[in-house]
Design a protein around this nucleic acid. Structure first.
Lengths: 261, 261
DNA sequence: CGCTGCGTTGACCACTTTCAAATTGTGTGG
DNA sequence: CCACACAATTTGAAAGTGGTCAACGCAGCG
């Protein structure tokens, strides 16, 4: 799973997360740099429902891509909101630091997913976005996106759809975090990952976790130890196979039953 | 706190929640029926940032209002998504029934707040919306709203803002449901209510709960008994006063400290 | 006046967390 | 390639928090 070839011009990652690198596209477009049209995530990303002409226009919005090394932040809580980011490769976590310095993870983000939307209302980011591995995002200036959405009804609709989808997902998680047992939470989490990996075109039954046990526990409101114990127990029960970060869901049906769906 | 005078034409509440009553506005507008411009929730509702001309146009979108009696549903999970609803008076809960018949409450909605947004992405409602008391909503046909948003940049922005705000709120709650103690959860819940009541122009320190202990517990992932015990304990500690559904926050600061903000 | 739903309180129990320690994996410098 | 240091994971035992079960008080209502 090596880093994909550079798509578009790739700017070196700035030391400070506050600096946005907005390079103009190269004038020589005849070379046909790979763009949204050629992106392997096209079918699951924001512009997925645009027709060719619209896609062309949308493509011009994407002013640049940006690489973020593992552990580095894409943006921080408190940063001014100007851009949305579409994950092109890799993965991220959203986290906010409570005043006692303890980090609380509020979400994970995978290729094709949009980050930063929670900041639209306050014009300021509420969370840190931190890369779980070396990653790359497409940078979408929000003002331009808004303007384009007025000219492209399908883009406007898609934007609303993605925002709405985020709400559903979050509420689904709330459902899970309140009133579900530790085992149910982990099962629900794994099924969520499975569905998302499947959506991206990967094997939904077999995938590699991009986050540590600690991060999973933090996210689910469980201790690291409990997460670890549950993996062991579920493996003993034949529900799944685990080897370090590799997970194989052997009994998805049983997991769904466990969660209550 | 009696039901406000009828605003706009009010259609009788249909027995079936699936029936939408979309009556055309009365032609005689010269009478100046109260509309958004006169609504007491104007300053906190979707059109709050529109100028007078825009407000006029927006007003024409609101095809009707609808009354929902306590315990009745505004829409059900599985209903086709066509409308957004702005709470005009009263309050609602969003709930979905897990397959074992157990209800799980995912949110509460108060005047000025928009309901139904989680359905935009799937074109189908994911939750039941049930009135906690006799309530009234303004009905916004989504297709018309989308079209209007293209013509009114400020409306488009406001729509995105409200959606984004919902995400923030939900993620804030996730934060709370994972990793917070029962006491912290209840404190956070009360502070959330306080803030929202304050935003609506009511006393943020003194309000009447619209939901039962059971509904609070369900929402927070706690048992009814625990909620009850916590109210008693917090009252003993002097943090608040409780009398049935009436609550007075005596030490908001201490509550915030408790939550960790 | 009894019924019924809601709220409160107590006793006991199960699930998770916390604390502690062993084990395995990963990265780095020699 | 090996050794060492540090991080991540796993496992065990003790301690707590919150849930479940049960009983009772209270208020609205036919």
């Amino acid at each position: 799973m090596t880093q994909g070839n550079a798509l578009r011009q790739v700017v070196p990652q700035p030391q400070s997360a506050a600096v946005y690198s907005i390079a103009p596209r190269p004038a020589a477009r005849a070379v046909m740099e790979p763009r949204c049209a050629n992106c392997c995530m096209r079918s699951v990303c924001l512009p997925c429902r645009l027709d060719d002409a619209e896609l062309e226009k949308f493509d011009d919005l994407v002013c640049t891509t940006r690489r973020v090394a593992r552990g580095q932040t894409l943006y921080r809580a408190g940063d001014k909101f100007e851009m949305l980011y579409a994950v092109h490769s890799g993965s991220f976590k959203s986290a906010c630091a409570s005043r006692h310095g303890a980090e609380k993870i509020t979400g994970f983000h995978f290729p094709g997913e949009l980050m930063g939307m929670e900041a639209i209302s306050r014009l300021e980011h509420n969370y840190d976005a931190i890369a779980l591995e070396d990653s790359e995002v497409c940078v979408l200036p929000f003002a331009a996106l808004e303007a384009a959405a007025r000219r492209m009804p399908e883009l406007q609709r898609q934007l609303l759809r993605v925002l709405s989808g985020d709400i559903s997902r979050d509420q689904g998680l709330m459902l899970m975090l309140g009133g579900m047992s530790a085992e149910q939470r982990l099962a629900a989490f794994l099924l969520s990952l499975s569905r998302r990996y499947g959506h991206m075109g990967y094997d939904p039954e077999r995938f590699v976790l991009r986050m540590t046990r600690e991060e999973i526990g933090n996210y689910l409101g469980l201790s690291t130890e409990t997460v670890s114990r549950l993996f062991s127990q579920m493996a003993r029960d034949g529900l799944l196979g685990v080897n370090q970060r590799e997970v194989e869901l052997k009994e998805s049906e049983a997991l769904m039953e466990l969660v209550g769906y």
